[in-house]
C-alpha cells in the first residue's frame, strides 16, 4: 500500500494529466457530437499540431507566437480537410466516415515521416517554464503546472464558443436534434465546417502544448487517439463537459493506478471504459441513441 503522500501527489498528477486528456478529447467529441463523424484522424492531427509548433518555433523562437502560428495552420488544415474530404461523407454510413478519416490519418502521419524523418524532434520547454516548483507535498515541473492553467484557459474559451455564441447555440441544437437544425433553415454545412475546423485547432493545440513534454515523432498520436476514445466514452459521446470530466477521470485512473503498479494503468483504463459502457452506456453526460 503506497503512502498517503504518494497517493496525494499521484492524485495531483492525475489532475494535470487529465486536463491534457480533456483538451485532446474535446476536439474529438465536438466533431462527433455535431457532425456525427468519429474522426479516426484525430491522433494524426494531434501529431500535426506538435510538428506545427516544432516548425513555427524554429522561425519565431517565441512559444506563444509559435502557438498562434500553429493554430492558424491547424485552422487552415481543418478547413481544407472538411471541404475536400469530410464533406463528401455526411450522408454516408458511419463506417465509411471512420474509414476515410482512418485513411486521412495514415496519409498525414506518412507525410510527416517523409518530410521530417522518423526521429523524435525536440521542442524545448519555453524559458519561463523550465525548472521544478516546490509545492510542499511534491515537486512538480513548472511547465506542467503552467500547462494546467493554459489548458484550462483553452477549455474555457471553447466553452464560451460553444455555450455563449450563436454558433454554439446551433452546435448544441445540432447535438440535441440534427434534423431540427436543418428544418430551421440554418446553414448546417457551414456550421459543420466551423466545428470541424475548431475541433482540429483544439486537438492541434493539445499537440502543441504537449510537444515540449513528449517525444515528437510521427507515431506519437496513436496512443493519444485511443485514450481520447476512452475519455469521450467515459464522459458521454459528443458531450463537451463530458470530455472534460472524462479526461480528468482517465487522468486520475492512470495516475492512481501507477501508485500501485504502473503496468496496469492501461488495463484499468479499458476496464473502466468497458464497465461504463455496460452500466451507463451513455456516459456521464451523454444521451444514448443519438450517435
Amino acid at each position: 500500500m503506497p503512502s498517503w503522500a504518494t497517493l496525494l501527489s499521484q492524485a495531483f498528477n492525475g489532475l494535470a494529466l487529465g486536463s491534457l486528456l480533456a483538451l485532446v478529447s474535446s476536439g474529438l467529441t465536438i466533431i462527433l457530437g455535431t457532425l456525427g463523424v468519429l474522426n479516426f484522424a484525430h491522433g494524426a492531427l494531434f501529431t500535426v499540431g506538435a510538428y506545427a509548433i516544432f516548425v513555427a518555433f524554429q522561425y519565431t523562437s517565441s512559444f506563444f507566437l509559435a502557438v498562434a502560428m500553429g493554430s492558424v495552420f491547424m485552422l487552415v488544415l481543418g478547413i481544407l480537410l472538411e471541404r475536400v474530404i469530410v464533406r463528401l461523407f455526411y450522408d454516408r454510413p458511419h463506417e465509411d466516415q471512420i474509414l476515410v478519416t482512418y485513411g486521412v490519418g495514415i496519409v498525414l502521419v506518412e507525410v510527416l515521416r517523409n518530410v521530417f524523418g522518423s526521429h523524435a524532434q525536440r521542442v524545448p520547454v519555453p524559458s519561463w517554464g523550465t525548472g521544478v516548483t516546490e509545492m510542499g507535498f511534491l515537486m512538480y515541473p513548472t511547465y506542467r503546472l503552467q500547462l494546467i492553467g493554459m489548458v484550462a484557459a483553452i477549455l474555457l474559451a471553447l466553452y464560451l464558443i460553444l455555450y455563449r455564441t450563436s454558433l454554439g447555440l446551433v452546435v448544441r441544437a445540432g447535438i440535441e436534434n440534427p434534423g431540427m437544425v436543418g428544418i430551421l433553415g440554418i446553414d448546417v454545412k457551414r456550421t459543420f465546417l466551423v466545428v470541424f475546423a475548431v475541433g482540429c485547432v483544439a486537438v492541434g493545440l493539445a499537440g502543441m502544448l504537449y510537444a515540449p513534454v513528449v517525444a515528437v515523432s510521427p507515431d506519437m498520436g496513436a496512443t493519444f487517439m485511443v485514450q481520447s476514445f476512452v475519455v469521450i466514452v467515459l464522459g458521454g459521446l459528443g458531450s463537451f463537459p463530458g470530455a472534460v470530466v472524462g479526461g480528468l477521470i482517465a487522468g486520475e485512473i492512470i495516475s492512481i493506478t501507477s501508485a500501485f503498479n504502473s503496468a496496469y494503468s492501461d488495463v484499468m483504463l479499458y476496464g473502466l471504459m468497458a464497465l461504463v459502457l455496460v452500466l451507463r452506456p451513455q456516459g456521464l453526460f451523454g444521451s444514448e441513441g443519438r450517435v
Binding site: 498528477n13 494529466l17 491534457l20 511534491l138 513534454v213 517525444a215 495516475s255 501508485a259 504502473s262
Partner: peptide, 11 residues
C-alpha cells in the same frame, strides 16, 4: 509506447 511518464516519474 507510453507517452506520459509523469506518474511513474513521481514515484
Amino acid at each position: 509506447g507510453t507517452s506520459d511518464y509523469s506518474s511513474a516519474l513521481l514515484n
